[in-house]
Design a binder for these strands. Structure first.
Lengths: 353, 353
DNA sequence: CTGAAAGCGCTAACAA
DNA sequence: TTGTTAGCGCTTTCAG
């Protein structure tokens, strides 16, 4: 390895990174004044501030977040907790969340986990304590476990939830109106003339699955169309489970003319199996999805779906979390509800006559 | 906000989290002994260790990483730096990398960035300094910019590179033999009987694009098949650019019978445009990709491609980085080369006769 | 508007 | 095998 003495770029005199002390002595002020400058505390005279900034510049000083955190009880670290099969969803959320974090000087530690494992709540609490994050963002379905929510509340740790199931926890929440959106899609299928509409629900552990199913059921019931239990199948929100459940639906003696899948991955699975069996989409079978993930446009034919504004959700979530860390929230935390947009594309059409 | 006094679960006497001092006094030993126990330093008698562990358990003590880091000069934090359009690739890498990190007690801070922005090197260095990460993993194409590599070396910051372009930097590197893999795919197409094989290269900023192109060219040249410049197109490693370049190839007066795309997204774009024009894959046109991302199996027909062992790469990268942080590396850092596996599926077949 | 002292929670170096 | 003494780099008192 290299010789410690032969130091490279800007470091302190002894080969280490410059500290607040180096800046202070170079600028001829006290530590505290430097501290005030780097934290933009108002009460510093412009002249002093100037001197300090020069010294900072000259030394290439960057404050040490650990030291700052230790002293101030603030880590400027946020935790991103997820257990989700959808790579696009997670990464898009991560990116938009992070963009907002950066603008506020926060960094992000990612913490994937397995909500089915027994120590899952403990693990997350432990993670939060150990890494000293100032707050957590919880993706679905992690955001929907009461045990975890209570544990975090007991820790007095600010967090924000992204999910579908509302419940009275003291944390802000961003949700999409899944029920209404699913209802709109069902109506669209109905409007096209379909009567035999099947529904492939998502993973039962996700609240969104149930909400979407409710939307579907409600519309049919309101329209006086009897629910056929064999037209309702549960999936795992994955492509493979879409193939499986789609296959089962197409195997029925009286198969549906339209299949509404709870997300795009499942819808793609359904379309794949249809292709395999030589069933033309949308001529013989309409397929609809949910999410508007990139695959919706990449698949052939392009998928009618509901657009979740993932980027927007991430941004709002970060804002809310930071607000809540800063204690800027009003009395009660609000739930922000967003409405997915219906994207009509090529995979849905009137039923064969 | 809530009353600080009305404290919830296990906290210190004054409503704060238990510290090493609390543990020490409860166990009736010194701070340092507790420290030894939590760091599993051998020289502690089993009896004392037992006592300490009991106290830890009882108080629900979790060491504060910031304090530890400040004192010990390491943070147990790693940085994950990327600028990559492929969500699957990034997230899969992240997950596998992280799994390995956890086993070694490291947490991960994610740092997406834009390699085209002017301050990009400075930004990453600043990030590293500020967040005190112990090391960085660089994904392609970030891993291929000499300026950044030099800057990190000057910082004495351990890092590991995942990429395609080898160069003598003092850091371990994991790479796939893109050139050889692309050659194997080209040979496969040749073996099927194709002579008019086009190549859609990736993004020119990625070294992998050039390596894959070399593999393609070499095979054709070795087989004495003249390179037709109109059969070589550059993309951006995205679906959309695949559509574009695929379209251009199919517009040729003498279009190819096979298109080898530099990644699966591009290949899907090519297939999409073929579908749109009513060109049957693989009957009239063979299409091959690279990566074996999930879409390769989800698309219809399923895509012949080269499997990059992304999960494996992430794991190795983490191991190497941690080794290098611990100074456990031999004299020189090694480059670990992996070989993608050829996955023959339905999108390639003999050319139409 | 500025500074001095004290200490955040932990580990390092030494000593015992 | 264990404890003591100093800090790590920063922010917080609270004085000036």
């Amino acid at each position: 390895m290299m010789d410690k003495a032969d130091t490279g770029s800007r470091k302190g005199a002894d080969g280490k990174r410059p500290t607040i002390n180096d800046v202070a002595s170079l600028a001829g002020v006290s530590k505290k004044t430097v501290s005030r400058v780097i934290n933009s505390v108002p009460k510093v005279s412009p002249a002093t501030a100037e001197k300090v900034n020069e010294a900072i510049e000259q030394l290439g000083f960057v404050p040490n977040l650990q030291a700052r955190g230790l002293a101030a009880r603030y880590s400027y670290l946020l935790g991103f907790v997820y257990d989700n099969p959808n790579a696009y969803y997670v990464l898009e959320m991560l990116n938009s969340f992070l963009r907002q974090c950066r603008e506020n000087g926060f960094e992000l530690i990612v913490h994937p986990c397995d909500y089915r494992s027994p120590g899952f709540t403990t693990d997350i609490v432990r993670f939060a304590r150990q890494s000293q994050v100032d707050g957590l963002v919880l993706l679905p379905p992690i955001s929907e476990f009461d045990e975890l929510l209570s544990a975090l509340a007991a820790e007095r740790l600010p967090f924000v939830r992204i999910g579908s199931r509302e419940n009275a926890h003291h944390a802000p929440m961003i949700r999409c109106d899944d029920e209404d959106a699913a209802a709109r899609m069902t109506t669209h299928l109905l409007d096209l003339g379909h009567e035999k509409i099947a529904f492939v629900a998502g993973h039962p552990d996700h609240a969104s699955s149930h909400a979407r199913l409710r939307g579907y059921k409600n519309v049919l019931q309101n329209e006086g169309i009897p629910l056929r239990p064999e037209y309702i199948r549960w999936s795992k929100y994955t492509f493979e489970s879409g193939e499986e459940q789609g296959g089962a639906l197409l195997d029925l003696a009286d198969p549906p003319t339209a299949i509404f899948a709870s997300n795009d991955a499942v819808a793609c699975g359904v379309m794949h199996i249809a292709h395999e069996r030589g069933i033309a989409v949308p001529a013989e079978l309409s397929v609809a999805g949910y999410d508007d993930s990139p695959i919706a446009l990449q698949i052939w034919p392009s998928l009618t779906t509901l657009r979740q504004p993932v980027g927007h959700i991430g941004k709002i979530a970060a804002k809310e979390l930071i607000k809540s860390i800063r204690g800027e929230h009003e009395e009660r935390f609000e739930t922000i509800v967003l409405h997915p947009e219906l994207k009509l594309r090529e995979s849905t059409a009137p039923p064969p006559s």
